[in-house]
């Protein structure tokens, strides 16, 4: 974990609201594991704004990639960044996903939840399938990126504008049936809205499979000090405790989470 000033190498809109930001962050990129995040001081708002956490979309050759959605004051300000600008970044933070799956890895992404899962797809020992869901076609990101590295991609949109009409968990049910029919095991890795994560987790538990869920909570310190982003969790012995999503997570196994 370091706090470093990073130069923007590239910054481009992927759609009307989603952006990809590439920064030079050799120390962070070298240490980063899929599922970890960085905590960014938003340029232009340094004096008045809290940091913003972003999943790591990619980390190679000293370059760190962030995929983000323009959702508020902080991210709106970030869209103004261009090559050569600098921003202060703490990272890598959090625990990350495990890198070996039992059986077929099934990645389940909601919206910009594809970000840590794309990084994961490139590092997992075995290739599998990625299920991407969104409200409309405009919310489906990184589809080609996954295909380029040899992953099978299934898409669901709620309005039917791309892929299957419905929820990404509908795709998951079909995929699960297929995997089971072939007598194979599977392991889930998911990132997206809480409702989706919960639904993926329920399916993992019901099927007796492991499900790794990356929680997206609003954070303040990012390092486990302030206790703003906590989650009630269950230990193997059934006792409960309050974990910090930024420090003890953001990735938890489905059985650990007390919703």
């Amino acid at each position: 974990m370091v706090d470093m000033l990073c130069e923007v190498l590239g910054h481009k809109p992927l759609t009307e609201v989603y952006w990809e930001l590439d920064i030079a962050a050799p120390d962070i990129a070298e240490q980063a594991r899929p599922g970890q995040f960085v905590h960014v001081r938003v340029p232009g708002l340094e004096a008045v704004s809290l940091r913003r956490p972003f999943s790591i979309f990619g980390a190679e050759g000293g370059t760190l990639k962030i995929l983000y959605k323009n959702v508020g004051r902080g991210t709106a300000e970030m869209t103004r960044l261009s090559a050569g600008d600098r921003l202060q970044v703490i990272g890598p933070l959090g625990n990350g996903f495990p890198l070996c799956a039992e059986g077929v890895p099934v990645l389940v992404a909601g919206g910009y939840g594809v970000a840590p899962l794309f990084f994961l797809a490139g590092r997992l020992e075995r290739k599998g399938v990625v299920l991407i869901g969104g409200r409309t076609a405009a919310d489906i990101l990184a589809r080609d990126d996954f295909e380029r590295i040899g992953w099978r991609v299934q898409v669901a949109t709620q309005d039917g504008s791309l892929g299957t009409e419905g929820l990404v968990t509908d795709l998951l049910d079909k995929e699960l049936a297929g995997v089971c029919a072939e007598g194979d095991a599977a392991e889930f890795f998911a990132c997206g809205p809480e409702g989706m994560l919960r639904a993926v987790g329920e399916r993992a538990v019901a099927a007796g499979l492991r499900g790794w869920l990356s929680l997206d909570k609003r954070m303040v310190c990012g390092v486990g000090a302030c206790l703003a982003c906590v989650q009630k969790l269950r230990r193997a012995d059934g006792s409960t405790w309050i974990g910090r999503v930024c420090h003890d997570g953001p990735v938890f196994e489905a059985r650990e989470i007390v919703w």
């Binding site: 008045v48 809290l50 909570k217 303040v220 302030c226 982003c229």
Partner: peptide, 18 residues
């Protein structure tokens, strides 16, 4: 402590109710 949300950013600072 308290349920979430435990914080919100406001102009000039933040509110917390950890």
């Amino acid at each position: 402590g308290n349920p979430l949300p435990r914080h919100v950013e406001v102009p000039g600072g933040m509110l917390n109710a950890i």
